[in-house]
Simulated scan of single mutants.
Amino acid sequence: MSVQHPGILAVAVVAILALIGGYVWLQRRRARTLAGTGLTTGRPRRDALRRHLPQAMFLTAAGLLLISVAQPQATLPVAHAAGTVVLAFDVSNSMKATDVAPSRLAAAKAAATEFVASQPGSVSFGVVAFDQGALTTQQVSEDHDATTAAIKRLQVNGGTSLGQAILASLTVIAGKPVTLPNQDSGQPEPDLGYFGNATIVLLSDGEDTGGPDAVAAAGLAAKAGVRIETVGVGTVEGATVEVGGYQVATSLNEDLLTQIAQATAGSYHRADNAQTLHDVYQSLDLRLTTERKPVELTGAAAGIAVLLLTIGGILMTTWFGRIL
């Protein structure tokens, strides 16, 4: 523990000792006065406790108030949201569907924008847009305004590859290209390092129209300590979208999104309308980290002092019918 104003603390300590000394002197003087009159000074232990307890509370409260002026502080572990969050948006043609108004992608973008704005500066964001391939549209940054601008630029196009989305997100987190190994050739899995404070938020309707294997890609994420939270945007009943002059039916594939999340100890969240999508963002379990920071204790000391003064006053009024 330390104080921001050591000089004031020294004065406070002297004042506290003076208060205690003054109280002891008054009690001894009172005892001598009673002895001089021939009156007994012996009292039962209970009466002595009742006589001194309120005053002890007042003295302690006065000491705490004096110490609080010196602004004491302690270095404590403080939990706060921190780390890296990569928002991976499905921008395939199926995200034009309007079963989530005004459209799946528009609702996802609006909720994501609010989510970014609500996070502290200690959370860094990256943005990945994916269809049949994947494109990093915002590198990891603490600039939340740049992240919001990147989200607003997203447009629908092409098919869907959830595997590419995960690999592109891992590339952003690891800072180097990440690909799935060729199992047939015996190629070893890449060593990405460990990123226990990173989370991928994968927003999609879950319709996977191309490789690589999304669950295998999620396995790479799990080994790197990266958790994937999947958000299913759309309804199970689905909707119809026009692609190249054709009407194509599209519906939410929850099974695949659930498998991806579970592979990394993450969670799947269904968002079948704009409000639930907003609620999903607010309930996302971001990584918490602890950091030792100096915490000022002035408020705590003053609060305890006020409590002691209140209790002491109640005891004095109850026992003696007066405060002093």
Rank of each mutant, 00 (worst) to 15 (best):
A35S: 15
L66T: 04
S92K: 12
V116Y: 01
H52P: 03
S103N: 14
A56N: 00
P120Q: 08
K96R: 13
F125R: 11
Q71D: 13
R50W: 03
Q155H: 08
P72C: 03
A146T: 01
A108Y: 02
E114D: 07
L53F: 12
V116R: 02
R104H: 09
R104I: 13
V128I: 13
Q55F: 03
H80W: 02
D143E: 08
A107P: 00
Q55T: 12
F115Q: 01
A48W: 08
T160R: 15
V91N: 11
Q73N: 01
G121A: 09
G38V: 14
L65M: 15
H80A: 08
L87F: 06
L34E: 15
L154Y: 02
F58D: 14
V91C: 10
M95Y: 02
I151K: 05
E114I: 00
S124P: 02
R43V: 09
L59I: 14
Q139P: 03
D145A: 12
T160D: 13
L65A: 07
T84E: 07
K152W: 00
D145M: 05
L87P: 00
E114T: 02
T41A: 13
V116N: 08
E114G: 02
A110C: 00
G121M: 05
T137E: 14
Q71K: 12
G158Y: 09
P54A: 09
A97G: 15
V69E: 04
A129W: 13
A129D: 10
K96W: 01
P44V: 06
Q155A: 12
N93V: 07
K109T: 00
T147R: 03
V123N: 09
T75A: 09
G126D: 11
T84K: 05
G121L: 02
G63D: 10
P77S: 15
G133H: 15
F130K: 09
T148G: 11
M57Y: 04
S92V: 06
L162H: 07
A112C: 01
H52F: 12
V128R: 11
F58E: 09
V91E: 13
L53G: 12
P77W: 07
G163M: 11
V91I: 14
S92H: 09
G42Y: 01
A48N: 11
A35C: 14
A150K: 00
R43W: 09
V156D: 06
V86Y: 03
V128N: 08
L154C: 02
A108R: 01
A62W: 10
R46P: 13
A107G: 06
P54E: 14
Q139A: 15
A165N: 05
Q119M: 12
P102C: 12
F125I: 06
L39H: 13
M95D: 09
A97M: 04
T37I: 14
G126K: 06
Q55G: 00
T37W: 12
A61Y: 04
G121R: 05
G159M: 11
Q71H: 15
V100L: 07
G63L: 04
A101S: 15
Q55E: 12
T160Y: 14
A165C: 10
Q155N: 07
K109S: 00
T40M: 13
L53V: 11
G42T: 08
P102V: 05
S122W: 02
Q71N: 15
D131Y: 07
F115K: 00
L64Q: 01
